[in-house]
Simulated assay, not measured.
Amino acid sequence: MADSSDADAAPPDVLRVRDLPPGAADALLASHGLQLHFVDDATPIPGSFWGEPEAGVIAHNVYVRGDTPVHSMLHEACHLIVLPVERRAQVHTDATDSVIEEDATCCLQIILADDLPGVGRHRLMGDMDAWGYTYRLGSTRAWFEQDADDARAFLKERGLPHR
């Protein structure tokens, strides 16, 4: 029997960038003016706010490894997408300066998950919960379905997907 502390230390079972079909993430990010960069396994990820294996951002670039969670790649990419293009150039590691931008980022990452084969919003929301995202309604899905109207309005005002 495994020690419970070993089980607690194991990373959650979430989709990783290596699980995506080749080119799918590149194409999605490119459609929003972003460049996806892959770094070698066990190499530090440039611009990672939380540290490995979390994705990193610098200007219009998103950095990932094979073990980067898909939700992290989408989250960091969406931080850049919700910003006006002229602000992207100033981003290095920390892209948010407001609560509404953070909320819009979370909402958009869920929406864009539908554009990645084998992911979809329901799987992504489950991965977000497993990773430790927290919302006052208790789950990512409850927040997205019942409490994200302000985030959707923010996205709509900027001409971004908000469905």
Rank of each mutant, 00 (worst) to 15 (best):
D3R: 06
S4Y: 11
A7T: 14
A7F: 09
D8M: 12
A9N: 08
A9Y: 11
A9I: 14
A9P: 02
A10K: 12
P12F: 13
D13F: 03
V14P: 11
L15R: 01
V17G: 03
G23K: 01
D26H: 04
A27R: 08
L28E: 09
S31Q: 03
H32Q: 11
Q35K: 08
L36A: 07
V39I: 08
V39L: 06
V39R: 10
D40G: 10
D40L: 02
D41L: 10
A42D: 08
A42E: 07
T43S: 05
I45G: 00
P46D: 11
S48M: 02
F49V: 06
F49G: 03
W50V: 14
G51W: 00
E52Q: 11
E54A: 08
V64I: 08
R65S: 00
G66V: 03
D67I: 07
D67W: 02
T68I: 05
T68A: 02
P69F: 07
V70M: 00
V70T: 01
M73I: 04
L74M: 06
E76V: 00
A77D: 14
L80I: 03
I81V: 13
I81G: 01
I81H: 02
I81Y: 00
L83N: 02
P84E: 06
P84N: 05
V85A: 10
E86M: 07
E86R: 03
R87W: 01
R87G: 05
R87Q: 11
R88N: 06
R88C: 03
R88S: 02
V91S: 01
S98T: 07
V99A: 10
I100F: 06
T105M: 03
T105R: 03
T105V: 07
C107H: 10
C107F: 09
L108Y: 14
Q109L: 13
I111Q: 12
A113V: 06
D114E: 14
L116W: 07
P117S: 09
P117Q: 10
V119P: 00
R123W: 06
G126F: 11
G126K: 09
D127E: 15
R136V: 15
G138F: 11
G138M: 13
G138I: 15
T140E: 14
A142V: 14
W143V: 08
E145G: 04
Q146A: 15
Q146R: 14
Q146N: 14
Q146G: 13
D149C: 07
D150A: 14
D150Y: 12
A151W: 05
K156F: 09
K156C: 12
E157R: 11
R158D: 05
G159M: 02
G159A: 00
L160A: 05
P161Y: 04
P161F: 10
